[in-house]
Amino acid sequence: MSKANLMLMAAVVLWGITIVPTKWGLETFPPFTLMFLRLVLASLIFLPFAWKRAQERLGTILVPWGRIALLSFTGVAGYFLFNSAGVALTSGVHASIISASLPLFTLLLAAFYLKETITVPQWLGLFMGTLGVLLITVQSDTQHGSSVLGDLLVLASELIWAIYVIQMKRPQGEERLPSELFTALTLFIGGIMILPFAAVETWIYGWSELTLTSLWIVVFLVLGPTIMAYWLWNKGIASTSAARAGIYLNAMPLISVLGSVSLLGEHLTWKTVFGGVLVLVGVFGSERAKRIEQPVAVSTE
Rank of each mutant, 00 (worst) to 15 (best):
S214D: 01
S214L: 14
S214T: 01
L215C: 13
W216D: 02
I217C: 06
I217R: 09
I217H: 04
V218E: 09
V218G: 10
V218M: 10
V219R: 11
V219N: 13
F220H: 05
F220Q: 07
F220V: 06
F220G: 08
L221A: 09
L221Q: 11
L221C: 08
L221W: 09
L223A: 15
P225T: 12
P225G: 06
T226K: 01
T226Y: 03
A229N: 09
Y230T: 14
Y230D: 04
W231E: 13
W231Y: 14
L232M: 14
L232Q: 00
W233A: 03
N234Q: 13
K235A: 13
K235E: 07
K235Q: 12
G236Y: 07
I237Y: 03
I237L: 11
I237H: 01
S239W: 05
T240H: 03
S241N: 04
S241M: 07
S241G: 12
A243D: 14
A245S: 13
A245F: 07
G246T: 00
G246W: 03
G246N: 01
I247W: 05
I247K: 05
Y248K: 00
N250H: 11
N250D: 02
A251M: 15
A251E: 01
M252P: 05
M252A: 13
M252R: 12
P253Y: 05
P253E: 03
P253L: 11
L254M: 14
I255Y: 06
I255C: 11
S256I: 04
S256T: 08
S256L: 06
S256R: 03
V257D: 04
L258S: 12
G259N: 03
G259E: 03
G259S: 05
S260K: 00
S260F: 00
V261N: 10
V261L: 07
V261A: 05
S262Y: 10
L264H: 06
L264T: 10
G265P: 08
G265A: 08
G265V: 07
G265N: 07
E266R: 08
E266K: 08
E266C: 12
E266H: 05
H267Y: 10
H267D: 09
H267N: 11
L268P: 06
L268I: 05
